[in-house]
Amino acid sequence: MLKLPKLPDRVPVKITISLTPELNQALAEYAALYAETYGTQEPVSELIPAMLKSFLDSDRRFARPGRSDASR
């Protein structure tokens, strides 16, 4: 038996959302701050998945013991 488990499905799933103008502006400002902080410009569309994962990982009720990454 290998120590490394079978890798999970890594095929991206594309979704479409609608944003308020205010949220769109806030995301653009966040992307600018990210670029200023790290010296690398990333499109908002690349930052959103990381932001959502960070949010879900930090939500204590959602990230309860026993919940695996595979179930997200």
Rank of each mutant, 00 (worst) to 15 (best):
L33S: 04
A70F: 10
A35H: 02
M51S: 04
G39F: 02
R61W: 14
E29Q: 12
K3S: 15
R61I: 14
A35S: 04
T20S: 15
F62L: 15
L2G: 13
D69G: 08
I15K: 15
Y34G: 00
E42Y: 04
A28P: 00
K53E: 11
S54D: 13
R67I: 12
P12H: 06
L33V: 02
L47P: 01
I15R: 14
R64Y: 15
G39T: 01
Y30E: 01
I17Q: 08
D69C: 07
L33P: 00
A50C: 01
G39H: 02
T20A: 11
S18G: 05
A26E: 14
P65L: 04
Q25T: 12
D9C: 03
A50H: 06
F55P: 01
K3I: 14
Q41K: 05
G39V: 01
S18R: 12
I48L: 12
L7S: 12
L19T: 10
L4Y: 12
P49Q: 06
V44Q: 08
L47Q: 03
P21W: 05
A28D: 07
K53M: 09
K14E: 07
F55T: 07
E46W: 14
F62S: 10
E29H: 10
E22H: 09
D57F: 04
M51F: 04
P49W: 07
L2R: 13
S45V: 13
L4F: 13
E42I: 01
G66K: 06
L4A: 14
S71D: 14
G39Q: 01
Y30M: 02
Q25R: 12
P8N: 08
Q41E: 09
P43S: 05
A70G: 11
L56P: 07
E22Q: 10
R64L: 12
R72F: 12
R67E: 05
P12F: 04
A31S: 03
